[in-house]
Design a protein around this nucleic acid. Structure first.
Lengths: 253, 253
DNA sequence: CAATATAACGTACGTCGTACAGAGTTTCAT
DNA sequence: ATGAAACTCTGTACGACGTACGTTATATTG
């Protein structure tokens, strides 16, 4: 399942994100709040994944009927918008400022914080944020990250590009790592076990001589990755390369 | 919807991938072949996305009943494995070799070919390939891409890491680009129109002074991206940075 | 011609988001 | 005090999904 943030009614989403719903003056006391629903939804998605996140499950969790949820939230799309903003909010509060350290240390920290966030909330990787939910937390995160590259002689567009490159890389390598863990959970097999179950059959189908480089390099890489380093290696390697590339850009200014 | 390659029975998948099913000697003439089903499925996914890819729709397209598909293919998971391998096959045949050009030109070409592939088959971005379908085409693609970094003094593990970095980057920036186009299709609004619909309401909720950098840089970036460059800019910018970083690695050898 | 293997199909189950209608509860205006 | 209005909550219903299962029709083999 891939969801789209910004998939719902933009007006309703923004009202929800900024909490501007006028307090109802009549009718029965509400049993819930939108915030409770968001918390329950995030907890459920953390624990069981986005596929398990259904309006019925959320309602179950909160002890109400499925349709009651729609009293507080226009629909699933708008709910997801708020979930995304709240979850990204775990990043911005850290950023009181960057008084010390080099730009490189700051960008590295941002990359690691984003990487860790996606591991805490793997469901976020299944949500496309090309039309990001414009909530307080997402705006705060962007502001925080831009401060890491302010005053280095980069143009505004370059500042945005560098931040997008680093956070985008953190996201995409977290995706690999999270998907590996999820594949392990689903299949009940570690990567090693999976490979051992595939290799014998593959051997009968393929002549290694047809793929000389792939056989050699694949074996070496498999050895390395199964040695507990795993997907974290790709993150470290890529981050070092990218920051070297950014360094080349900055010193050309 | 996110699908997992390798989600089905590995043995059945491998048999399908390498086409080793023994020809049936009795019974009615098959009306279809597995290959026809894969072709129809890819065409459907290209045209309408992975969400529209259902066994019922494929059957409709081929003029048979839904359950007939299961005569040729064990299930949807195994079918997707074969779709992925076939689609990646569009890359490898190009690679007769890399007689000329620098390593940088070769890696750049690989990145552009991958980027273009994901635009031809956007549904591939919704399929996780941590347990890749070990078909002839995927093996061929890996072999081809490794040749681009062979003989540069890199270790086997480094060769794998560089190829993974470049192709992973192509995938993740293609994802942004494809998702942007998809969001446009779904909402019937261009990014510009969407922003114009959100901005006025957002202005009433947010004080720009709280986000000085974000406001300034966001405006500059928005200007730049709406100027027809769009998500292609992020790809070009990131690729240049990454190749600069790889250059630093290679010249340190 | 019978036995056997294969193809194709119809039905059924439990899942999803949510439209809609109705019943119960609280507050406000009079 | 009373009726209207506003609001909360619930039950039912629809058409989509993958596919297990059992049945019928068809082709090949002995």
């Amino acid at each position: 399942m891939t969801e789209y943030s910004g998939g719902g009614d933009p007006k309703r989403s923004l009202e929800l994100l900024w909490g501007v719903r006028p307090r109802p003056r009549r009718g029965p006391k509400p049993r819930l709040t939108a915030e409770e629903i968001v918390r329950a939804a995030i907890a459920l998605a953390d624990a069981e994944g986005l596929d398990a996140l259904s309006m019925r499950r959320i309602a179950d969790e909160l002890g109400v009927s499925p349709m009651s949820i729609y009293t507080y939230v226009p629909g699933k799309a708008e709910l997801i918008d708020v979930m995304v903003d709240r979850a990204f909010g775990e990043l911005a509060p850290l950023g009181k400022g960057f008084e010390e350290g080099t730009w490189r240390a700051r960008l590295e920290r941002i990359a690691r914080e984003n990487w860790a966030l996606f591991h805490r909330h793997p469901w976020m990787l299944q949500i496309t944020t090309v039309r990001p939910p414009m909530g307080p937390n997402l705006l705060g995160k962007y502001e925080y990250e831009l401060r890491a590259v302010d005053g280095l002689g980069l143009s505004d567009v370059e500042m945005d590009s560098v931040v997008a490159l680093v956070t985008g890389f953190a996201e995409s390598s977290a995706r690999v790592s999270v998907n590996a863990a999820e594949a392990e959970r689903r299949s009940g097999m570690s990567d090693e076990q999976w490979w051992e179950s595939v290799a014998p059959l593959l051997d009968t189908l393929v002549d290694e001589a047809d793929y000389p480089l792939g056989s050699r390099v694949g074996a070496a890489a498999g050895q390395e990755y199964s040695a507990a380093v795993g997907p974290g290696h790709a993150f470290e390697f890529g981050l070092a390369r990218i920051l070297d590339g950014v360094e080349a850009l900055i010193s050309s200014r």
